[in-house]
Simulated scan of single mutants.
Amino acid sequence: MSEKLSRSRRLRWVVGVASAALVAGLVTACGGSTSGKSDTVYFGVSGPKSGNSAEYGRLWQQGFDLALDEINAAGGIDGKKVELKWEDSQSDPKQTVPIATKFVGDNSIIAELGDFSSPASIAASPVYNRGKLVQYGFTNSAVDFTKGGDYSWSPSITLDVYQERNVQWVSAKAKKVSVVYLETDWGKQAFKYFQQYAKEKGIEIAYDSPILPESQDFRPVLIKGRDAHPDAFVHLGYGPDGALIVKQLRDVGFDGQFFGGQNTPQFISLAGTSAEGDIVNGVFTPADTSKKVQDFVTKFRAKFDTDPGDFNVYAYDALNVLVKAAKHGGATRDGVLKGLREVKDFSGIGLGDSFAFDQQTRRPTGVKPIELVLQNGKFVPTGSK
């Protein structure tokens, strides 16, 4: 009796294991395991669709959508349609790590795009590198981002280059400045480089202060900066906080030159006339008369009834670069990596006509920011009429 019971239990155990394996197989198949039979190629996007940085996710979405229209109309990748799998990270490091784990476990995803902020991306880099999934941090300017490993790549101009150019442009208009910067790792690094290059150029930093990204009232800090009697005020941060800074600067009576904010519709709208004459680092302007840029602007306006800005261009270029890499190396994780390593003629709206990635830094060579000034509600190259 005991032996029969034992055999019965063993049989139930075997059947149970087999059933569990079958269910797991079905779940894996439904979850997007790469089998070579799918007619769709997926890229994962880790980025903000809600929270304080949601505006950037919206701008990314527009850039991605236009790129997808063109890529798929041209046959996708080897005849396969290209689609995105989005996860809303709120650009929060606590959320980017589980998203990275999810993307690495989804074998249908051949590369990842994002996240928006460098700290959010850097937190997830170990997961992507262990999982051998390319992490393409296309807005990550922190110098240390690509040091995360062989699978961390970025086309973004680094903070040291940005701030060297920023100081160059500031020095043409001011010898004494007050500076505010975000109290984040990114903000502290930006200020470190600004401070370094300002010293080299003989610019006096009369006052400096970190600011909290979530703050709404910066006037106590701005009054101190105003009372240092600077020639100009420099803001090292993002669009939403930059808009508040410049409006409140005007409220407390500073009417001098402002350097800060970002080339985004949100900044221009929120800052209003307070930001007229503002100077920023940029990678793109609709005022560029080249045929490539004007073709892009025309298509973007037709689809979204507005002018594109930097963050639309970042996303548009990023997806096109990864698709070109996949076409070269194959629509697989290894293929994307191979393409990034071997293609020598990547291009983009904000990246120039031709570039290759430096294989040590995993960033493009020769890409430089441009100086833009806000005139009549639009950012145009300085010197434009």
Rank of each mutant, 00 (worst) to 15 (best):
residue 314 Y to F: 07
residue 53 S to E: 13
residue 156 S to P: 15
residue 71 I to N: 14
residue 16 G to W: 05
residue 76 G to Y: 01
residue 305 D to L: 12
residue 3 E to W: 15
residue 243 A to N: 08
residue 87 E to P: 11
residue 249 L to D: 03
residue 36 G to P: 08
residue 86 W to S: 00
residue 72 N to A: 04
residue 293 V to T: 15
residue 298 T to S: 10
residue 332 T to S: 15
residue 371 E to N: 11
residue 334 D to C: 15
residue 220 P to N: 06
residue 359 Q to P: 10
residue 41 V to K: 05
residue 60 W to V: 07
residue 377 G to Q: 02
residue 301 R to V: 09
residue 130 R to Y: 11
residue 277 G to Q: 08
residue 287 A to I: 06
residue 91 S to V: 05
residue 192 K to Y: 12
residue 147 K to T: 13
residue 56 Y to E: 01
residue 63 G to R: 06
residue 259 F to A: 01
residue 215 S to W: 08
residue 148 G to T: 02
residue 72 N to K: 08
residue 280 V to M: 03
residue 83 E to C: 08
residue 38 S to K: 14
residue 193 Y to R: 05
residue 47 G to R: 14
residue 365 T to S: 14
residue 294 Q to Y: 08
residue 33 S to H: 13
residue 215 S to R: 14
residue 344 K to G: 01
residue 281 N to Y: 04
residue 313 V to L: 00
residue 74 A to D: 15
residue 360 Q to T: 15
residue 209 S to T: 04
residue 149 G to Q: 02
residue 292 K to R: 14
residue 211 I to C: 04
residue 375 Q to K: 10
residue 111 A to K: 10
residue 338 K to S: 10
residue 266 Q to E: 13
residue 19 S to H: 09
residue 70 E to Y: 12
residue 318 A to T: 03
residue 354 S to F: 06
residue 5 L to W: 14
residue 384 S to L: 03
residue 90 Q to C: 08
residue 307 D to C: 02
residue 126 P to E: 00
residue 115 D to Y: 12
residue 181 Y to R: 11
residue 244 L to I: 12
residue 20 A to N: 10
residue 160 D to Q: 09
residue 223 I to F: 07
residue 246 V to S: 03
residue 144 D to K: 11
residue 335 G to S: 12
residue 313 V to M: 00
residue 379 F to G: 09
residue 129 N to Q: 09
residue 95 Q to D: 11
residue 38 S to Q: 15
residue 197 Y to A: 08
residue 142 A to W: 03
residue 163 Q to Y: 06
residue 21 A to M: 13
residue 36 G to C: 05
residue 157 I to M: 06
residue 277 G to T: 03
residue 196 Q to C: 05
residue 123 A to Q: 05
residue 244 L to N: 12
residue 261 G to Q: 02
residue 374 L to W: 13
residue 228 A to I: 13
residue 229 H to G: 12
residue 153 W to S: 03
residue 287 A to G: 10
residue 20 A to C: 12
residue 286 P to R: 01
residue 293 V to S: 15
residue 93 P to A: 00
residue 252 V to C: 05
residue 47 G to L: 13
residue 275 A to H: 06
residue 54 A to K: 13
residue 143 V to E: 04
residue 121 S to C: 10
residue 279 I to A: 00
residue 248 Q to G: 08
residue 336 V to A: 06
residue 76 G to T: 14
residue 38 S to G: 14
residue 137 G to M: 07
residue 247 K to A: 06
residue 154 S to W: 00
residue 140 N to P: 13
residue 22 L to E: 02
residue 237 G to A: 02
residue 46 S to H: 10
residue 250 R to S: 06
residue 144 D to M: 06
residue 147 K to D: 13
residue 61 Q to R: 11
residue 282 G to V: 11
residue 320 N to A: 04
residue 38 S to E: 15
residue 55 E to P: 08
residue 104 V to N: 05
residue 62 Q to A: 05
residue 291 K to P: 13
residue 300 F to Q: 00
residue 330 G to V: 12
residue 253 G to E: 07
residue 160 D to R: 06
residue 52 N to V: 06
residue 67 A to C: 03
residue 258 F to Q: 08
residue 86 W to R: 04
residue 294 Q to H: 05
residue 323 V to N: 13
residue 310 D to H: 07
residue 326 A to T: 12
residue 138 F to R: 04
residue 147 K to G: 15
residue 91 S to Q: 02
residue 36 G to W: 10
residue 55 E to K: 09
residue 108 S to E: 15
residue 333 R to T: 04
residue 268 I to Q: 00
residue 63 G to H: 05
residue 343 V to W: 03
residue 222 L to E: 01
residue 106 D to Y: 01
